[in-house]
Amino acid sequence: MQFLFRYANPHNFMRLSGAVLPFTAIGAALALIAGIYFSFSVPPDYQQGTTITILFIHVPAAIMAMVAYSSIAVCSLLSLVWRHPLSDTAARAAAPLGAMFTVMGLITGALWGKPMWGAYWVWDARLTSFLLLLFIYLGYMALWSAIEDEIKAARAAAILALVGAVNIPIIKFSVEWWNTLHQGETITTGKLASVYVPALLTMMLGYFLLFITLWMVRIRTAILERRARNLMQGVAS
């Protein structure tokens, strides 16, 4: 914990993230370029045809949407228990990224669904729980911006994030239950053929590095914004 906190000091964070940022950014770019190349050069799937390419964009987005929410939940816990201001900044900074990944997951899911199901939206269990996840992200961001006092907003948002973290697995379970009840057209994709693994893994790495990069940039921006505000307030008084 002590180790974590040393880098959780805004000053140290700026130094450390400044040094790491170029590497993660370049890494993300390389992995994504390679991943996209792999995605388009794989042989078509016997069942899904060339639409399998969509999955290489869809699956990592869906996973990152969950990773981003988990990051928010962990930061919120740190903030509530140890009152660390940087974890609030980090939690807030991750939310729009998570929402963006969720939207990407929903759009690519719908695009994949059209050839597979014959409709863009068939209330598939996974898509439906992601739609609810998107609303949870929107509510979280709305609460942050609705409360003016930043400290209060941070703690309220942290409580909401943790309530959401407890609830998301239940929502996921209930939506799956609901789907079996209404005989939805969920297609269970079998085990991924080994020929597709490199493409998926590279894309996953690219998405992950992209998330880390953008997250750090957003945290840095928030810190700089606060510093600038403090400076201007100092001048005014």
Partner: peptide
């Protein structure tokens, strides 16, 4: 805030 949580 709460409607998504009430889906279940």
């Amino acid at each position: 805030i709460i409607l998504p949580l009430l889906a279940p």
